[in-house]
Design a protein around this nucleic acid. Structure first.
Lengths: 214, 214, 214, 214
DNA sequence: AATGAATGAGAATTCATTCAT
DNA sequence: TATGAATGAATTCTCATTCAT
């Protein structure tokens, strides 16, 4: 009996500790799911609360500015997570093509899994320009890092100045995002997602060549 | 007396006719300008009325469903106008490259002049899927027409089946729109608009080759 | 029949015209009455709407910032009205005592009729310091005017510099208000209102003498 | 083992005893400071907890009815303390003027140090009429005591019936409070606080004479 | 005893839409 | 036709209060 209560105590304590992050994740999930169904501006904090079966007060505890905060905080977490998943360390001269495909696939999967968030983000930047600024900075930092690594291990990239390389990568990153967003969230204009990914893979090669010269 | 009233009727009818379109245009202009400033969901019909110095009743007279109607009606007018401006008749074997550049430039100018509307349209389709369907149909009709014309005058296109050609054009059209939107309304990722247009021009060539094979 | 409709049209037009000010007055009346019953911070705009049987939207049409605006606009109207009711023109050497009593009585009646407003005003200045500033300015303007008039017609006041006179009047005005507020809105510490007014009348004489010397 | 626990109990009890009053004082201080900054109705118990760096649960432990209780309990403590500081025993025929000045100065200092509380108290009585009643009783008890003492030692006061004397003192007490509150918490209408205190001192003399006759 | 997560009623405010004039 | 006053449902957000840990 006492053993049992001991276990319960530990478990419930653990459960409680987890609850905080669980609740935050539940809010994220519910919010972005509702956005997919009803659109950003028809999804209210009250809808989220009701749908997630938590109180509206809980949402405002974790996200004091409401919808804006949910998006901003998810942005901060997800950007970090996404870029951390990309393994820049093992890039070398021989696996660049493979790396690019992997990168495109990660971006693709990220878009697919975060459609609600991406719609929300694009709605939110209309009235919160700082959000866009933050994103720009994160993207710049990542590609600066990537450019430096590639110029160390790869002869072909060494010939391009670092700044130019960063600029190229940012353009390509934006192109991929533009196309993924349009295809996944506006209108599917490729037959299959495989065709889309394959196209993007070739587009990147085309862009690397084109941007280098222009 | 009756003469008098007759004259007044004619005059006021004329005046009204002019006023009607003027008022509609004023509503369009004000609505899309406000959207650029404050975002779609923070722009209300009441704001538009106040800003345009007309009454809210007038807006609902011309657009009984409010914002949704403004967007839908502008969509209908502007799509028609846009495609009518594209001269498909004089395309021939020699000026295709030139035609494509012209087409891209028209799309580019269209985006630039209609940023507010484009933001509104993308917000509206979140809760009105018919809007997207209508657009798809308009686009399909236009490119079917274009494919037929090109296959008549141009040997190279004759080798591609009509359906395939239409599909290719629609993909390219979507790609251009995706990139224009991202660059003009989300984040400027090309240094200058000239670079953007130039890139798109080359991208189209790349795509025509790529899509033909895949 | 047509006569009848004619009359109705005129009446209802009048009624409509009046409605605007009538509605504003209804909001004032309802708001200040509720404050007397439940206190300032327990009186919400929604209560006012329900109690006055008008919609909440109507309140925000006339008072876009809600409670704050109701108080500020009533303040502006009532200050002007109050000071306009005081007839400074006919003050002369002989009727000063009488004038002072009249002034005290007006202030007293004003407090009595506006208890709800006065409570609201004192609550509102806690978070809106501009309200107090505006009041100070109105009061200063009025007493500057009064001082100038008195120094023209009255030998005894002529011996006091204008600035000093204004300062004295403002102190006396504040003293009367402080006492009226405490007695009427906090705790009745005089047996009867007559005793209060009589006391104030003598207090003013005392103050005029005291302040002149100090 | 049992010894050990015994020691711990004593120690923690001591520690707790000190902590308890410290915590209550911290709540008082934080609450009244916040009220001065933001006004009564914009100061919530949650704000107090956050600002004082204690938990909201602790506030509700000591003050189960929240803000209302904080004010009521502070009122009970501070009224008692204030009147206890006034030394009625040593009043005699010769030092009455001095005593009155001392009393005014104590009231003045009390207002100055308790501005936040006084604002809170005046807000709270709007919805808690008992608070006012309690205050009236405390005041009455004190001045009844004072009247009795003065009539024993002072010939001049002996001529006034006890009830009349109590009534006079209560009026004067309210007048001073009304003026102090208006000057210190609403609008400074005396140049300096010294002028205010000096004025009040003379006002009391005037009132004693005036009220005796009326 | 102390904590602070959670609750949900309710306050402030907005906005699409109607309708009398 | 044109106006704009009026409506009230819906949204954002706050806050007193409870209760599990």
């Amino acid at each position: 009996m006492s053993n049992c209560s001991f276990i319960i105590t530990i478990m419930s304590h653990k459960k409680f500790s987890r609850n905080k992050q669980e609740k935050i994740d539940l809010i994220y999930k519910t919010f972005f799911t509702l956005i997919l169904k009803r659109g950003y501006h028809k999804t209210s904090t009250n809808h989220v609360a009701k749908s997630a079966k938590i109180s509206i007060g809980t949402i405002y505890k974790y996200f004091p500015k409401g919808k804006e905060d949910i998006i901003r905080k998810y942005f901060e977490e997800s950007m970090k997570n996404f870029f951390e998943r990309i393994d820049l360390i093992s890039i070398n001269n021989e696996n660049i093509r493979e790396f690019l495909n992997h990168f495109i696939l990660e971006l693709y999967k990220n878009h697919l899994e975060n459609k609600g968030y991406i719609i929300a983000f694009r709605s939110a930047i209309q009235s919160d320009k700082n959000l866009l600024k933050s994103q720009k900075e994160e993207v710049f930092t990542f590609f600066k890092d990537m450019a430096q690594k590639l110029r160390k291990t790869n002869e072909s990239f060494k010939q391009v100045p670092e700044d130019k390389l960063v600029e190229m990568f940012i353009i390509i990153y934006n192109l991929i995002n533009a196309i993924l967003y349009h295809h996944l969230s506006i209108m599917e204009f490729f037959d299959t997602n495989e065709k889309l990914v394959n196209f993007l893979s070739n587009l990147v090669i085309f862009c690397l060549n084109y941007l280098r010269k222009n």
